[in-house]
Design a protein around this nucleic acid. Structure first.
Length: 429
RNA sequence: GGAGAGGUGGCCGAGUGGCCGAAGGCGGCGGUUUGCUAAACCGUUGUAGGGGCUAAAACCUCUACCGAGGGUUCAAAUCCCUCCCUCUCCGCCA
């Protein structure tokens, strides 16, 4: 959500800077509605002022035992005009919000221009890919032959794009969750949160999933609740409609949740394996900070996500997304891409974004300076988040990168304490 | 699911139709006093939108907001309706 005043005052500038991102925004209607709203607001407020004064006159006349019929009649007429004006204003505001909520965020100046992921730029590459004497197997081949992944039965009980983990596979997933949470809470200073996995409509609107992306979400049939597509939604909305004290900032949360996504429009993509599922686990990092510090926070948060990959010994690269590949609410995003030997390519495993005030304006998350009167201005915070990491993709990356010639899987050292000292996953008897 | 109670400013808490944006207290901020701290005293203290002034603020002014949305009335925190949320008891469950 953009600030409407800024939008009005810098209309053409914003329109131009949004470029292709704003292609499906109805700019002309938008401009008209903004002006209409302004004019109508003035009119209605003027009338209300009249009514207020008139009513006070009635009160005074009655107190002085004087006839008030004429004044009452006049105010009745004013009241009717107000009702008309308000009805019109409501219509305009509804139409305006409908358009304004669909405008994506402005990219930060350091974001490269580009149409699609082809224009993303590589920032750095860390570690080295493992070498294999024989062609690397895919994680689904490894998993099914080890008996720790079961897609057939998942399809039976749920459908396509679901997975069942069993035995050491299930334990490895659980170990990863604990490992990541411990790292972020004990080493990186985040506070752990375990939020609801379904949320209401205002929460989804606050972080930008609604109204534009409802078809990507699972919604309950009998209640207006949505299954969360990421912990970003409940955790960012924790402070919805709050005014935080500047001394509380930055606030850093980490949360494990399952994530639910319809994956509408991705038919045929990544149909095998754990890459793209309707339900997956993720450990998320969320931060609230001041506008001055949010870009430093983005760098910091990104390194926290990278730390997971480094400790697990996985090779990855950091990509800076171009304007065309940026998410709807984001001003700047780094993707972390892990090396997958079976695919011979890098695949996204984390996405770290600074939303600046975009979500905060929608969700009403502000802060107030703690100094004297002059610093006490109330402003919108900047919100950030990043995966730290997508657990399922981490698991499959470990399977593929740590596979052994005999089909077993070595467990990275950092994870062994979380696996009861297990060093290797072998076929279970 | 059944029965009851309640939602007022950062917090507590008054207010049942007319200068109520809202008494009082606490907290916060500024100040006086003070060797320092505490106490005391004085002042100040919500958010949003529109307009004016401005380089921008400060500031001035209007409007809205007493859980949310409707309604009654010249006039609603106060009366009516619907919804949401919280609490207590019972039932049911993990």
């Amino acid at each position: 959500m953009h600030d409407l005043r800024t939008l009005r005052e810098s209309f053409d500038d914003i329109r131009e800077r949004l470029g292709a991102r704003g292609a499906d925004v109805q700019w002309d209607s938008l401009r008209k509605l903004i002006e209409e709203r302004r004019a109508m607001t003035g009119q209605v407020e003027q009338l209300r002022h009249e009514l207020k004064k008139g009513s006070d006159d009635v009160a005074r006349l009655k107190r002085e035992k004087q006839p008030a019929e004429a004044a009452i009649a006049a105010m009745k007429a004013v009241g009717e005009r107000i009702a008309q004006g308000e009805a019109g204003l409501r219509q305009v505001e509804e139409a305006l919000n409908d358009l304004a909520f669909r405008i994506p965020n402005l990219p930060h100046a350091t974001v490269p221009a580009g149409k699609d992921s082809g224009s993303n730029t590589e920032v750095r590459r860390v570690g080295t890919p493992p070498r294999f004497s024989i062609p690397a197997k895919s994680h689904w081949e490894l998993g099914e032959s080890l008996g720790i992944l079961d897609f057939d039965r998942a399809a039976k009980i749920a459908g396509a794009r679901f997975a069942v983990l069993t035995g050491a596979g299930a334990r490895l997933e659980r170990a990863l969750i604990n490992f990541m949470l411990d790292l972020h809470t004990m080493r990186h200073g985040y506070r752990e949160v375990l939020p609801p996995f379904m949320v209401n409509r205002p929460a989804m609107t606050g972080t930008g999933q609604l109204p534009k992306f409802e078809e990507d979400l699972f919604r309950l049939a009998d209640e207006d609740y949505f299954l969360i597509p990421t912990a970003e939604v409940p955790v960012t909305n924790l402070h919805r409609d709050e005014i935080l004290s500047e001394s509380q900032l930055p606030i850093r949360y980490t949360a494990y949740t399952p994530c639910f996504r319809r994956e509408a429009g991705s038919y045929g993509k990544d149909t095998k394996g754990l890459i793209r599922l309707h339900q997956f686990n993720k450990v998320e990092l969320v931060a609230f900070t001041t506008p001055e510090k949010s870009y430093a926070e983005l760098e910091r948060l990104t390194t926290h996500a990278e730390a997971v990959l480094q400790q697990l010994g996985l090779h990855y690269r950091v990509m800076l997304l171009c304007t065309g590949d940026l998410g709807f609410s984001s001003a700047k995003t780094y993707d972390l891409e892990v090396w997958l030997p079976s695919q011979n390519q890098y695949r996204e495993i984390s996405s770290c974004s600074n939303f600046e005030g975009f979500q905060a304006r929608r969700a009403g998350i502000r802060y107030k300076g703690t100094g004297g009167k002059k610093d006490a201005r109330t402003e919108f915070v900047h919100t950030l988040n990043g995966s730290g990491l997508a657990v399922g993709r981490t698991l499959l990356a470990i399977m593929e990168n740590y596979q052994q010639p005999d089909g077993s899987i070595a467990i990275p050292e950092a994870l062994q304490p979380y696996m009861g000292g297990m060093e290797r996953i072998t076929k279970e008897g």
